[in-house]
């Protein structure tokens, strides 16, 4: 599994890119990511869901997992807590 997360926007406008390769993390960490992907319903989420609010942090998340590939763009005020937990977990692995 390969995960690419790009964070941009927010008041600061900082851009940060994180790439996670499941071959380079522990089995436990990989299992946790898979759980969060399932709980958030990631592969069924629409490709673009933005609040349009100014200065909120924007995310572009791409996952390639055993033939399943999906990319979504969203922001911190347009998504559920499960997706934010997934983002938090990915950032911890950076």
């Amino acid at each position: 599994m390969r995960i690419t997360l790009v964070q941009s926007g927010g008041f600061a406008g900082l851009r940060r890119e994180v790439i996670v390769d499941s071959d380079r993390i522990s089995i436990g960490e990989c299992r946790r990511l898979s759980e969060l992907l399932e709980r958030s319903g990631f592969f069924a989420l629409p490709p673009r869901r933005l609040s349009g609010l100014p200065d909120v942090i924007q995310y572009r998340l791409e996952v390639d997992d055993a033939g399943r590939q999906h990319q979504i763009t969203f922001d911190g005020e347009s998504c559920g807590e499960e997706l934010l937990l997934l983002i938090e977990q990915i950032e911890k692995l950076a």
Binding site: G10, F11, A12, L53, P54, D55, V56, I57, G76, E77
Partner: peptide, 8 residues
């Protein structure tokens, strides 16, 4: 939280 914003 590393941000500030206006939520409308």
């Amino acid at each position: 939280y590393n941000n500030a914003f206006w939520n409308g």
